[in-house]
Each structure stands twice: as C-alpha cells, then as structure tokens.
Simulated scan of single mutants.
Amino acid sequence: MTETLFYRLPWQSSSVYPGAHPGQMIGAGQLFKRHEPLIASPDPRRIDLRASILDPFSSYRVRVYQQQSSVNVYLLADMSASMGYADKQQTLLRFLLTAANSASDYGDKFGFIGCTERIEHRWLLPAGQHLGRVSALAKQLERLSFSGSANGLQNAAAFLPAERSLVFLLSDCHFPLPQLRAVLGSLQAHDVIPLVLWNQHEYAALPNWGLISFQDMENNATRTLFMRPALRQKIIAAYQQRQHDLKNTFRAFGSEPLFITEGYSTQTINRHLQQRVA
C-alpha cells in the first residue's frame, strides 16, 4: 500500500480550481477574507447585516470567503549516473509513486521532469491527474540504466508552468555548487523542496586499512588509494563539509534541504514537510 505525503503550502495558490490548499481566489470556503458590496458579489445569503448598517454609504455588505485551491506538484529528478548507485534509483521510483498518489488524494495535478545530460521528452510528464501514466513511467525508469551527468537540471524551469508550483528536487547533488546555484536561481518562481540522496557506503563504510578503487560514475575515471585511518577521516570530513556547503546554498535561495542517508522513509519526509510550515 502506497503511503501518503502530507504536504502543506506556506503560501496561497493562484489556481482557479478548488482543492485542499489556501488560495487567492474568492469562493466556497470557511475562511473569511473580507466584505464586498452586494453588487460585486451578488449572493444575498451572505449579507452581513451588522456590516451593512455600519456602511457609511448605506449599501449592503456581503461576506466573501477564501477558496481552497489546487496546486501543481512536480518531481524534478536527477537521473545522472551517480543516481544509479546503490538504492538511489529505487528511492527515486518509490518517491515518484508516493508523490503522484498523494497529489491525486489532495486533488492536485502531478508532473515529472527527468534530467540527464539534457531533457528528453520521454522523461517529461506534464502536470495532470494520470496515475496510469505515472505507473507506466515508473516501469520505464526501473529498466533504465542511469548514465551521464545531470546538466539538464539547468533547463528544467522552461518545462514548468508559469504559476507557482510545488517542486520536489530529488538529487544527490554530486555536481559543482555554481551549477546548483544556477538551477535554484532558475526555480525561484516556485516552492522548491530539496531532497538530497546520499548513501552511507559512499563515505561512512570505508575500511581503515587497504587498497580501495574509487570510480567517478559519470566520466568513468578511476583512482586507487591506500586507505588508512587519517585518510578515511579526511574523506568523511570532506562529506561533512560538502553537506554544510549544500545547506548554505539551498538556504540562500529560501529552501531547507532534507538529506536522506539511511534509506527511503515517507515518515521522515513528512516530518520535514511539517517542520517547514510550523
């Protein structure tokens, strides 16, 4: 059974379609927004007698309410070679299905943008309510061998709608910080939730002694090192510094990242989603 993401918006959706989130539109709802003249909102059922009596122009005043609206939810996925390491690809697939089903439960539209060296149309799914197409896409991705870089991330904003959307950015961020800044800069019109996938075997499970061969999965370059305690600690410290730098980069663009290092957990992501609107 697919679990549910309980995402909430700290902003108001501009969508005209009813949904589950705070909206900018006036319509059916329970949250009072303001008074308007009866002629502007001709619904006699909502005449406020007290406000009408106090009106200096002796006109009828009507209570109008904030409409709950829908939102477009997108998964912007890094599909580079490094995302094929260990369980990262399976985590991407699980989150894809979880996010799509959750958006459907909320009455929202869900879309997907998969990024490799460039953005290919076969990895594009415009926002809509189409769980069947999402399931078919997941099966295609499951058979795919991730390769190359994630340079396509820098062009992803062109495939997002003009109105503000909720964008989950799923990546291991194993690319230069200037490239990440360019990606985040292009996404500033949207609400971005970064989910950073790391696997502890990349750095924490290294032995204290022995020969270890490291391979860059994106350019296939290899390097053999003689591991020793001091070098092992240096590598771990480099990852810790990288995490610190990534956090500062995301925060500079108004986003708080979640580092997923111990396998996929919907509960962990939900706690992060609750904290961002607390």
Rank of each mutant, 00 (worst) to 15 (best):
A150V: 14
P178F: 11
E36A: 12
F159Q: 14
V64E: 01
A189T: 00
A205S: 03
G185V: 02
F253Q: 09
N208H: 10
D105K: 08
Y239T: 04
G254L: 05
P161T: 11
A77K: 09
M227T: 05
A162K: 08
A221H: 12
R223T: 09
V62D: 09
N101E: 05
C173R: 02
K88D: 00
G84Y: 09
Q215F: 00
F253Y: 15
F6G: 00
Y85N: 08
E142L: 14
N208W: 09
L206I: 04
A157P: 13
A86I: 03
G27V: 01
N72T: 05
S149H: 14
Y7C: 01
F6Q: 02
A252C: 05
M25H: 12
L153H: 08
D172P: 12
F159N: 11
S13T: 14
G263W: 05
M79G: 00
A156V: 14
F112T: 08
A150T: 03
D87V: 10
A157Y: 09
Q154N: 09
Y239S: 08
Q154Y: 08
S102A: 12
A81E: 04
A100Y: 15
S82N: 10
Q24A: 08
Q243I: 10
Y203M: 00
W11Q: 01
R223D: 07
M1W: 12
P126R: 14
I26H: 05
R242W: 15
T91V: 13
L184Y: 00
T2A: 12
E262M: 07
D172F: 13
M227L: 06
L246Y: 10
R94I: 07
Q241T: 11
I212P: 10
H130I: 01
N151D: 15
L197A: 15
Q274A: 12
V73I: 02
H35T: 00
T222I: 08
D87L: 02
T91Y: 06
Q233P: 04
F253I: 03
S70K: 03
N219Q: 14
D55C: 07
L184M: 04
R63K: 15
I26V: 13
A162T: 07
L92E: 00
N270Y: 14
V16F: 00
G128V: 08
F214A: 03
C115Q: 07
G29S: 05
Y264D: 05
P18F: 02
L5Q: 00
L231E: 02
N151Y: 09
M227F: 02
P194T: 02
T249V: 12
F112R: 04
V167G: 09
L273V: 06
P37D: 14
A28R: 08
G132P: 06
I26C: 00
S104C: 01
E163L: 11
L177C: 11
G107W: 01
F95Q: 12
L231A: 03
F253N: 06
D245V: 13
I269P: 13
C173H: 06
Y74P: 03
Q200T: 04
D191C: 05
F6L: 05
D216E: 13
W11T: 07
E163A: 14
